[in-house]
Design a protein around this nucleic acid. Sequence first.
RNA 1: GCCCCGGUGGUGUAGCUCGGUUAAGCAUAAGGGACUCUCGAUCCCUUGACCCGGGUUCAAAUCCCGGCCGGGGCACCA
Length: 503
Amino acid sequence: MRALFEKYREEIETRKKEEGETKKLPSLPNAEMGKVVTRAAPNPNGPFHIGNARAYILSHEYARIYNGKFILRFEDTDPKIKRPEPIFYEWIKEDMKWLGLEWDEEYYQSDRLEIYYEIAEELIEKGKAYVCTCIPEKWRELRDRGEACPCRNLEIGEQLDRWKKMFSHYKEGEAVVRIKTDLNDPNPAIRDWAALRIIEGDHPRVGRKYRVWPLYNFSCAIDDHLMGVTHILRGQEHAVNERRQSYVYEYMGWEKPVAIHHGRLMIEGVVLSTSKIRNGINKGEYSGWDDPRLGTIRALRRRGITPQAIKELIISLGPKTSDVSVSWDNLAAINRKIVDPKANRYFFVPEPVLLRIRNGIPGKYYLRLHPDYPQRGSRVLEIPESGNGEVELYVPKDDMKSIPEGKIFRLKDLWNVKLIDKDELLSERVETEEMPKIKIQWLPLRESIKAIVVMGDASLIEGLIERNVLMEKEGEVVQLERFGFCRIDSASKDVVTLFFSHK
RNA sequence: GCCCCGGUGGUGUAGCUCGGUUAAGCAUAAGGGACUCUCGAUCCCUUGACCCGGGUUCAAAUCCCGGCCGGGGCACCA
């Protein structure tokens, strides 16, 4: 009995160890090594955001884990309501690459209309689809009652005739191809869903070449099959679409891929909805698609969030079906771990005030670029003489407000000073045994450049930054000591603009 | 209204498939301490959770039913 007990415990412990070693994704159902095919299917009507990235990263990750294939497919079949724009095709590819999601194959649904037509015709011939010319509201009434519309049971020859007419005769909104399903399905959303409709619109890739366009469920089902997709990972808003699409698979005799529907991913206080963003930009509320308040990949990038952090976050969430709302702190914590060892340190003095220091020692001071890696070298700050035995340095206004008169504090990596007169901002260098608890950053005027930090809520904080920061490349993330990690957005001798990442 | 899917500390997650050996683990946040390297990093300590009610069972976070709460869908969008 005792022995059995021990044996069991051992087993549990080894299993735990295995799980603990690599925090990774749960295994995919029905997945065979080397045979997994996944895809990302963006609509190029805007850049994608972290919510979309969840599906793309999981898809890519699984394809790599199983040594399979990852496909990028642009779903640009709505030239009107969600009109694609040329720039977004490029941005999506750019953001995919930045996230490290290299794809093995690339497709555009707007190139594949003939394929969809062929399948549609086949389904009509088989009596599995029909051309419906009902008024939408009328049709929905019948659907809700579970009744067939007058078009549904017309002869196949008549259906094929109507199908041909969709390419010339019918006008926009007058006819639609529907897939026959169970009219008594408890979920009305499933009943005889629409597969193709007529749109007279200018498509950025194919112009006015086509007027019959497939709807999501139709083109998606066909492409997933034709492209050999074995596993679909997408948001739970598509759960019902899986059931709709299963009719196409059944009628065509195709094998169904595995579909996994994850929950929504939101970040606290961040705007994700493409239409909301578009509106905000048009109204001038947001500066653009990379405004720091937005959850687009480009906005996160601009704020100095690394692709590794985004990937790590999403993989740690996994493909769970429940929605998650991640706190900004959570993302920041992951990002900080990645960025901290790389980011060089600089002084930034927000809302600078001039502090006089009696007995200060002018000269050149060498400060480490990174406290943990002395080999990385140092930066130099030269403190000039200002006559009368005093030295003048800029320090943060807030600190001067909170430090009481008579208190000894430290100018970080310099000397300890005692605040003599709070109103006059006069202090004096002192020697002390102990390191004061309060340490603040400082800057001599001639070593400083004006700096503007764009915060996460798009507010601005102005101050002075040490000009040594010009040694860094634009786009680099640095740590402004006691202020936080920031990404250098642009830098010149006159002004440096940074985007605040996090503490 | 109808149809799906969820609900574990402040936040996120593990455990739920195959009920017990975990006084429910991890991360993050918060509070405290160490470090003459910062409000960063590192190290140590503390706080803190199985939505509610029934049922099945020797035993339920785990299985079943009901309720409550949250999300998504019900487009000629994707």
